[in-house]
Nucleic acid binder design. Structure first.
Lengths: 105, 105
DNA sequence: ATGATGTGCAACGATGGATTTGCAGGTCGG
DNA sequence: CCGACCTGCAAATCCATCGTTGCACATCAT
């Protein structure tokens, strides 16, 4: 199916504090540009642009060029896959606990 | 509470395919040891032990020594925080979309 | 006690990520 | 047309992580 380790890319993208900050700002403050986002962060514009590229590769944001600026917006669909994976682990573990409990009863 | 950037540690731990594999094996196959887990993976025992240490630092597993072996089991509570964060981003974005839709209507 | 098994720690090389600086191209306003 | 602004690409540096090997210590069975 398409990209290898798509879920891993999402987790890797979310592992960086700056990227989580960017995602939070984009989701609560609405679409914005790399330059505007960099103004509120302690890193350069290029670093922010690179982070946005990583987020875009993970499918978490999408950039659309309008004139001389590129505006990024959140595309939260891949989060569903990640949540799926985590809840599956939790569910398997819970089922295992339940089975053990039944065995002991 | 706890350490700084606890959520980041969880995402960073989940970013590695080997660690996700370990977590999946532990949750579906029950508690196990580093040596036993390494037998089914293309890496050495030490690498697995290191990964388990990272997972333990993130609070996702917990090791208990019984005699000469250390048995690791899943502790999925930190997953809840990560899911919280993700659903919050999704919710903020959805609310923003709803507000925009209302504005246009 | 002795050998086998399981574990942990330390050092090493290799790989990839994060950030900065510098530069070139495209776009808007006067 | 020209200056100002925003963007993208490339090179260089620094640091963390991943995986390995080697060794020392603890534990179980015989």
């Amino acid at each position: 199916m398409g990209g290898p380790d798509r879920t891993g890319a999402v987790f890797a993208a979310l592992a960086d504090p700056t990227r989580r900050d960017l995602l939070a700002r984009l989701s609560s403050g609405g679409p914005s540009t790399a330059t505007a986002l960099a103004a509120g962060l302690p890193v350069t514009r290029q670093a922010v642009a690179r982070h946005l590229l990583v987020l875009a590769d993970a499918g978490l944001v999408r950039g659309a060029r309008a004139g001389r600026e590129t505006r990024y917006r959140v595309t939260p669909e891949p989060l569903a896959d990640a949540v799926s994976w985590m809840t599956a682990v939790g569910a398997d573990w819970d089922r295992r606990l339940a089975a053990l409990r039944d065995l002991l009863a």
